[in-house]
Design a protein around this nucleic acid. Structure first.
Lengths: 200, 200
DNA sequence: TCATCTCTTGAGCGATCACTCAACAAAGAC
DNA sequence: GTCTTTGTTGAGTGATCGCTCAAGAGATGA
């Protein structure tokens, strides 16, 4: 049974507001004062419900990772039968999701902790590890594709993983710089031309 | 003739120290206190010599733009006879310059003002405009290449400009995430496979 | 010598930062 | 009703932020 005074705000709604702010401005450029205002709660409630600013941010990242724009890469890798289809879908969905005006532009994990003071280096490392984990997923999938014959023997799975990772990160930044979905779709189409042709 | 008490520190050396800090951490994550310590001057001297923090940063960006890692793109576009050679050189030099351990990783213009509070939005806009100006240079050069027959009629100069811009920005971020020159050279080689083949 | 000009220095300005806490409020347990 | 538990509130903590300024120092010009 729920003891004590019940919470007067919706935790998920408040988290969504925090996500929006962190996504737009990044970790350090978002102050606790702005957070409490956007979440419509007082500092004490924020710290009681979420711990400190770092804990709130990490929870935001977890929620973001389960949202459509945060989960489309893992979803495509899991659902597409061929690796080529997976990367085609990933690039096209990135082109649609990153400039979507219904939320801040680009990817939170890519852009929310680029500029941090030494005392918040942990937050930057946290997101960097997530990005490098993603590169690892790419590499694993591409290696498997090579073993199964979808990629020719002279292809370089590690290089392809870095390449697609770079293109995706570049698309995120271009979306934040104002690039539109049609422009990013053309980037995606060009990027796919680097896919290794089947062995002759 | 120089009137008044002469400056006791070397302005260019101090600027170089400021550049290093801004490059490493970004605009807002670098405090004036850290700047004065790194430049080995007191706040009054900084403000007398450089104006305020924003003016110092803009001067840092100008100096950076004349340094090797800040100028290699314009240099390649100006010096290479063919557009293909220019972009080949740009990507290879980016792969060498961005992870170079003799300075902070990546490109200052790409990564120094990703996360800013609204009161420093002007700084973010300043760098964004520089990035979009660069995209414009790419587009102009690629359009000229098409008119001169180096690119086939069905090529899309605007799309190619966005594509190479995205790859370069992605390479900068990957360098900041720890990617090495060999890895980035492979990214560069893959990226060039998107270059339009001559009309059959 | 002395006035003038510029730079340096160190103290310190108001504002904002992340965060805390005592007092109070609203629920269930008994 | 009373106790216990948890959440809310608003004032306020010390630290740091970008920045300023009066006082002193080092140079030139007259």
């Amino acid at each position: 049974m729920a003891r004590g005074r019940p919470r007067t705000f919706d935790r998920d709604t408040a988290l969504a507001q925090a996500t929006r702010l962190f996504w737009e401005r990044g970790y350090e450029a978002t102050s606790v004062g702005e957070l409490t205002e956007a979440m419509n709660i007082r500092p004490g409630s924020l710290y009681a419900a979420f711990g400190d600013k770092k804990s709130l941010f990490k929870e935001v990242v977890e929620v973001y990772g389960r949202s459509p724009v945060g989960a489309f890469i893992g979803k495509a890798l899991a659902e597409e039968p061929t690796t080529h289809a997976a990367f085609t879908r990933i690039l096209r969905e990135a082109a649609a999701a990153y400039p979507d005006p219904s939320h801040p532009a680009g990817c939170l994990i890519i852009s929310a902790a680029t500029n941090v003071t030494p005392q918040d280096a942990e937050v930057a490392t946290y997101l960097r590890d997530l990005r490098n984990t993603n590169l690892g997923l790419f590499k694993t999938r591409l290696k498997a594709a090579q073993q199964q014959g979808e990629l020719p023997p002279d292809a370089d799975p590690n290089a392809l993983a870095h390449y697609f990772g770079a293109v995706i990160q570049g698309m995120s930044q271009q979306a934040r710089d104002g690039a539109t979905e049609p422009a990013l779709l053309k980037v995606a189409a060009l990027a796919l031309k680097a896919w290794p042709p089947p062995a002759a």
